[in-house]
Structures are given as structure tokens and as C-alpha cells.
Design a protein around this nucleic acid. Structure first.
Length: 370
RNA sequence: CCAAGGCUGGCAGAGCGGUUGAUGCGCUGGUCUGUAAAACCAGUUUAGCCAAGUUCGACUCUUGGGCCUUGGACCA
């Protein structure tokens, strides 16, 4: 009975993850019966896009498996990384006024209770911990070579060569310290941040801390045509992960959670989506990961009788097969996806009707538009 | 601290003491496809890190300052 439950939990936690470091460790932790403390850290930078909704669906799974969910509003990291207007105060304020609000809105979109997630503002936490926190940062820094730190800094959406000041090296050290200081045993992030988790696990070993389990989710593709590069290992074409993800510098590459229906339709319609081609297709990527997240999901395609009439898909595989065989036209699929997004994101739009939240959204819009 | 090179449109990146800022990418619009992409056509407005000077006239020359890059010096 208990084994079954553990198995269920394991499945629930891992079913949509792209990577678990390591699976055995996670199984062991579940078996130990000790509480699972999760965390994901977010820089206070851009606007909230559908990737957050996807992330929230994963967090919801974690919670249903009994995991305690924590989100770090990383205002210090934002400051280190020179985001927004470059001031800590701004990151601090918008962390609470916009980011926490947007994350709560995303939680509402996936039907989880926002109040059951702990939101931790970095600066408040560091103040509370005082010297102990900074001692941890130093410990991590001492346990990690410069080369290693540098390699982990591509998480910030910059190439190594673009890193010019020392603060950039403090950034990953703080990220590791956050995990230790919060007593996290389930460190969660997107695939783009896996390096820093690997550094953290190595440092844990060196410092005698328990190695946190690192879990990484798939990054939803941006809507623009993919940038393909040659993989030096296999010689095959792969996507440039940094170029492919949704970004605030390319507003049409992402759907934001508070976008209005017209905006959603416009962006989806603009999206790259070659007929019959499954590979590197952002719309199908979203359908696969975001929409058919779990069993029982459906996608209704409404189309003219001359194009085959309405059809409801109950699995991604089924849909992909039709798409590959050109039985499902991109335009019909796009319309269906747009409708799904409009409906799913409705709670977020409503949430941001509230004047204070709207004002915070306007401010972040202003700070990130140029 | 010293030296060399750089700082031009959203980005990359030419040329020139004076007249229409090359080219590429991006972006916007159009044509063509039942979407997008590709292709082709059109558009992208008051560019020159700052200051002073030389000059009839400087983005282009001189000097000072700022920032970036690389190298050196100090520590040895």
C-alpha cells in the first residue's frame, strides 16, 4: 500500500520533467519519508509568459505529491545581473508587486491555490539570516573553481564572453547558497539552469551538505522560427537553446499571461508552424507539453466542414499523427491553440484588472520595453 | 597606473573633411501559398560617446574626458 503511494508520488513528480538528478536519489528520498522541500528561483526581470503556467502545472504536481513549494523572488540576483533599471530597490518592490502577483495569477490558471505556495523575497531572507547567509556564499565560492562558476553563468541568458564584472561570478554562488540556506532537497529550474544545479551538488559534497536533488523542466519553444546550430557531438541540427526560448526582447516570441484575446490570436497566428512538420515546431511543442500535460486533457479543433469538420483530440500522439499526415492544417491547429490559451489564461487577465496589479504591470512593461 | 585599438541606425558592420549612412540581420507593409516560414517587392522617420579646438565646413583632423577590449606595469 505504502509502496504504491510512493510510486504514485514518484510518477506525479517526474511525469513532465526533462531531467532528474538523480532518479535513484529521488526514490530514496521518497522512501525515507522525510518532507520534500522544493524551490525554484526567479529573477525579477521580464513579464510573465505561458512558460510560467507550464512551470505552475509542474509545481501543482509536486504539491499533490506532498511537496512543499517555495518560490524565491530573486531580487538580489536581478540587481547583480543589471536587469530592470539596475537598482535593487526596484527589483525588491516589483518582486512583491508584480512578480508574486503574476505567479499567483499563473497558479490560478492551473487551478492551484496561490496561498499554498511560499513566496520568499531574497532581500528579506538575507536580512533575516544575516552573516550566516554570506558565510554560505563564501563557502560555496571557496568550493568551486572559477572555470566552473563561469560555465554555470550562461543561465543568465548571456554568453560567457559577455561576462565582464565580478558580480557575475557571485550570482551562481548565491544561487547555491540559497538552496543550502533554505534547506532545499528538491531544487527545480528550467533546463537552461542545469549547470548551476550541478555546481551546487558538487559544492554540497565538498561542504558536507546533503546533495539536493535537481529537477529540470522542458523549456517551451519561442514562437519565432528556431535558430538551428550544429551539435558538435552528433553533427545533427539542434536548436540554440538560448535563442529558442521565449524572451522579452522578442515580444512576439511569447504569450504573456495577461495578454488579451486579440493579442493572443495575433501572436499565435504569426507563429512559425510549417504544415506536416513536427520537428522544431513551437505550436506542436506547446500542444505536447503545455496542453496535453496530463491524461484526460483534450483539444477541440473547430473547422469548416470542407476541411474535415470539428474534431476533438484526446491525446498528443493522435494529434501529431494527423498533423504529420497533413490531416490537420496549421491554421486550424493555431485557432484551437489560441482558444485554449484565451480560456486558460482568463483568470490571469481578470486578476490583473485590479488597479494596483495593473499599475505594477505597466511599470514592468515600461522598464523592459527598451 | 601605462599603452594600443575601438565607440556610427534596434543589432552587426563599411566608407568619406562638405553632397542621397554601403551591406547583412531584424522590424513594418504588400504579393504568393487556407497559418507561419521561404521567395520576391516596398518601407524603417531628426546616425555619428561627451566637451573644446583647427577649418568656410568635421562623423571623418587635434586635445581633454567617459566607457569597452587587449596587452603591460606593480606584487617578483
Amino acid at each position: 500500500m505504502e509502496d504504491v503511494e510512493r510510486n504514485e508520488k514518484y510518477k506525479l513528480i517526474t511525469r513532465n520533467l526533462e531531467e532528474v538528478l538523480t532518479e535513484d536519489e529521488l526514490k530514496q528520498l521518497l522512501e525515507s519519508g522525510r518532507p520534500l522541500r522544493h524551490y525554484i528561483g526567479l529573477e525579477i526581470s521580464g513579464k510573465a509568459h505561458v512558460g510560467w503556467v507550464y512551470m505552475m502545472r509542474i509545481i501543482k504536481d509536486f504539491q499533490e505529491a506532498g511537496v512543499e513549494a517555495n518560490i524565491l523572488l530573486a531580487d538580489w540576483h536581478t540587481w547583480l545581473n543589471k536587469k530592470l533599471d539596475g537598482r535593487l530597490e526596484t527589483a525588491k518592490r516589483l518582486g512583491r508587486d508584480y512578480f508574486e502577483q503574476a505567479l499567483k495569477a499563473a497558479a490560478l490558471c492551473v487551478g492551484t491555490d496561490p496561498e499554498k505556495i511560499n513566496f520568499i523575497l531574497g532581500s528579506e531572507f538575507y536580512e533575516k539570516m544575516g552573516n550566516d547567509y554570506w558565510a554560505l556564499v563564501v563557502k560555496v565560492a571557496k568550493a568551486t573553481t572559477i572555470a566552473r562558476m563561469l560555465r554555470s553563468t550562461t543561465i543568465m541568458g548571456r554568453k560567457e564572453t559577455e561576462i565582464s564584472d565580478t558580480a557575475m561570478l557571485i550570482y551562481p554562488a548565491m544561487q547555491s547558497a540559497d538552496i543550502f540556506a533554505l534547506g532545499i532537497n528538491l531544487a527545480h529550474a528550467g533546463m537552461d539552469q542545469r549547470n548551476v544545479h550541478v555546481v551546487t551538488r558538487d559544492a554540497a559534497k565538498e561542504l558536507g551538505f546533503e546533495k539536493p536533488i535537481a529537477v529540470h523542466h522542458h523549456l517551451l519553444q519561442g514562437l519565432l522560427p528556431p535558430v538551428l546550430v550544429n551539435d558538435p557531438k552528433t553533427g545533427k541540427k539542434i536548436m540554440d537553446i538560448e535563442a529558442a526560448k521565449m524572451s522579452k526582447s522578442k515580444p512576439d516570441s511569447a504569450i504573456f499571461i495577461h495578454d488579451d484575446p486579440e493579442e493572443i490570436k495575433r501572436k499565435i497566428n504569426k507563429a512559425y508552424c510549417p504544415e506536416g512538420v513536427v520537428e522544431f515546431n513551437p505550436i506542436l511543442d506547446w500542444v505536447k507539453h503545455l496542453i496535453f500535460f496530463s491524461e484526460g486533457e483534450t483539444l477541440e479543433v473547430r473547422r469548416h466542414a470542407k476541411f474535415g469538420g470539428d474534431i476533438t483530440y484526446t491525446s498528443y500522439e493522435e494529434l501529431e499523427k494527423d498533423y504529420a499526415n497533413k490531416k490537420l492544417h496549421p491554421l486550424d491547429l493555431k485557432a484551437a491553440v489560441a482558444e485554449w490559451l484565451i480560456k486558460t489564461l482568463e483568470p490571469a487577465r481578470k486578476y490583473f484588472d485590479e488597479p494596483n496589479r495593473k499599475a505594477a504591470l505597466d511599470e514592468i512593461e515600461r522598464l523592459t520595453s527598451h
